[in-house]
Amino acid sequence: MDKQEVIDKINQVFEESFEIKKEELLPQANIFEDLGLDSLDVVDLVVALQQKFGIKIRADQRVRDIRTLEDVYKFVLILKSEEKKPLK
């Protein structure tokens, strides 16, 4: 899955789960101030991302540091790349 596919899928999550319009989904958009999510909505977002990408997301510091949509893209891309790494 390339970067653009990941971005499209994440945008789909925001459109489907939160009914946020496509034109509002800008990488620099703050998910709290601009898109209107709160900490509880972030939990719903995590669940939706887990379902969409079939990955396990732990509620660690990296989730707490997410502020913008770009941060979400980066976070999922990191998780996907970690997934590919062979277990030692």
């Binding site: 009914e19 209107g36 909505d41």
Partner: peptide, 8 residues
Amino acid sequence: LGAFKLKN
């Protein structure tokens, strides 16, 4: 509606 849609 979900909580997010309801609040909005």
